[in-house]
Design a protein around this nucleic acid. Structure first.
Lengths: 314, 314
DNA sequence: CTTGACTCTCCCCTAAGGGGAGACGGTAGC
DNA sequence: GCTACCGTCTCCCCTTAGGGGAGAGTCAAG
């Protein structure tokens, strides 16, 4: 505590300077000689920005930015050179800013805190924010893990959880002997829809709705649906119905022949399990490209949509 | 699957168009009539950007951005109007982009993945990234909790963990009867340093180093240190030494009389405990503003620095 | 032909600074 | 007093993943 001797150095310029006399006092202090220090002209209690930055492990740019934002004004700014001079006691203020930034507050919020507009509720709100971010991040991690577990297989056909909007459809229930017979009834349905004056919705959305959960080898009860712009009169073959919105559905695109559907099912079901979801609705298979517009089976495209919800979150 | 009938629609334009014949084919398909749909001029397999965006729960801006970045080029762009047209099969590509984004990849990385520059190591690196972010976030949470626990007390004098750089000091060991006698030996030390030709380091750093851990009421062995530019010859009173860098030190600023030091100690020690640190070095008290330059005790400023390390991380 | 809904490009904006250019300021050595 | 060198100033552009809007052109329906 050698500076102990310097009792008679003029003091009291804690507030930011504004007039000439204050400036003079500050400059006097800057050039005051230490009792024994051999660098008499080095400012002793006022530091230029580079030194102040170095003392506090921050960059010059950062200090200038805080000055601009009004978070930490230098104790004194030379009018002609524009040089910023900082006091040692401002370390504490900077310290506070850095600590608040560490907790996740942004500069705007920190400024409000400085102005005293800070209460418990804001701290709690920030805590909620962090918790939310934390859960989002753990979700990401789980998905990444599932990618890592499944090799690159599911990188080209990834699972995405999205919502399915409400949709009005023309539907036709059938029981097909096997999955192969799935498309047999379709021509009839097309004719019937044309007869009833149906207009297809845009974008087109044509899918098979599996009416029973689980996998059965035969006697599969399904519903063939096509989105339409409005309900028409029900006929013997066709009923109109509205599917309510599905908040979350795990979806995967399947490219290629329908014989390989099981692979895509494996991927999406694994995803559901590994990411803490459970199936909470009947599965839809949406047909996008197929024999009607693609010559090669390899170009066929479908989407499997499985309504899910997070376990425990009902 | 009503579009089943449309077997004879020209196909095979999966690649992005470039020449005139391809364009014509595409436009043909756009204006193709459905068998039964009543909006014959509505494009059937090509969608404009708004529709394509709506189908996929993304914004138009996003699609345009992906186009610019080369992540998802529209299947066809009208040369005169500049309109972007998307194919249904591109939903799968968009799907992949969104899924990768969900896992935390940025657009640049996604582009690399699309180009096949993707291997397991990158997935693992991304996982490490997420884990790091996760631990940073839990740290934030812990600090926030400690703020919440301590009311607003420590918001004005927050604890910050930072590094202390290597420093060369002149030191003088003494045993003081009580903390009150701490400053008694200082004038002597100042004179001696002057005699030895010491030059104070800039910025000034003058502190008491407590040589024994724990708190003792009397017979405190301390070391008074002042940073200097270079070593000089040791004298009977003064030795020169180099403090190595301290990687992590929990620091707190203390404003006001030294009688209240215990309060600041309480705050910082609580912080250390609550944030999973432990003390791993001797405590320093750095004196910044004091009786030598401030009239009012309220303006005195000191900093308590406690070397710490994360428990378990050595 | 008009209207309204869509789309285009172009420009500026975000948070917290980073990087650099060109011009001064301050100090040290000669 | 001159020069070299470092520190600092302001000003400008850049980062991500798009958002907002202006002004102009397009598309389909009445």
């Amino acid at each position: 505590m050698l500076s102990y001797f310097r009792k008679n150095i003029p003091v009291g310029i804690d507030d930011c300077v504004g007039n000439e006399s204050e400036k003079e006092v500050l400059m006097m202090r800057m050039y005051e000689e230490h009792e024994y220090c051999k660098k008499p002209k080095e400012p002793s209690r006022l530091y230029r920005i580079g030194m102040f930055a170095g003392m506090n492990h921050v960059t010059v740019k950062t200090l200038r930015h805080y000055d601009e934002q009004g978070l930490l004004k230098p104790a004194y700014v030379d009018e002609e050179s524009g040089y910023r001079y900082y006091q040692v006691s401002q370390i504490a203020d900077l310290h506070q800013i850095l600590a608040l930034k560490n907790v996740g507050f942004n500069l705007e919020e920190i400024k409000e805190i400085q102005m005293g507009k800070m209460d418990r509720t804001q701290l709690i709100r920030k805590k909620q924010e962090i918790l939310g971010e934390l859960s989002r991040l753990t979700d990401k991690l789980a998905q990444l893990e599932s990618y890592l577990a499944g090799e690159s297989l599911n990188l080209s056909a990834p699972v995405l959880v999205k919502s399915l909007p409400e949709v009005t459809v023309a539907s036709m229930q059938t029981v097909v002997k096997s999955y192969d017979a799935l498309f047999d009834a379709m021509p009839k349905m097309g004719e019937e829809m044309e007869r009833l004056g149906c207009v297809c919705a845009q974008p087109e959305y044509c899918f098979t709705h599996y009416l029973e959960p689980g996998y059965k080898e035969e006697q599969v009860r399904i519903e063939t649906c096509e989105a339409v712009t409005e309900r028409k009169e029900d006929s013997e073959l066709i009923q109109f119905k509205v599917f309510p919105e599905v908040k979350e559905a795990a979806c995967i695109f399947h490219k290629g022949s329908y014989n390989d559907f099981s692979k895509s099912y494996a991927v999406v079901l694994k995803y559901i399990e590994e990411n803490g979801y459970e199936i909470c609705g009947n599965i839809r298979e949406s047909y996008i490209d197929g024999v009607w517009n693609k010559e090669s089976e390899k170009e066929w495209l479908s989407e499997i949509q499985i309504p899910v919800c997070k376990i425990g979150r009902q």
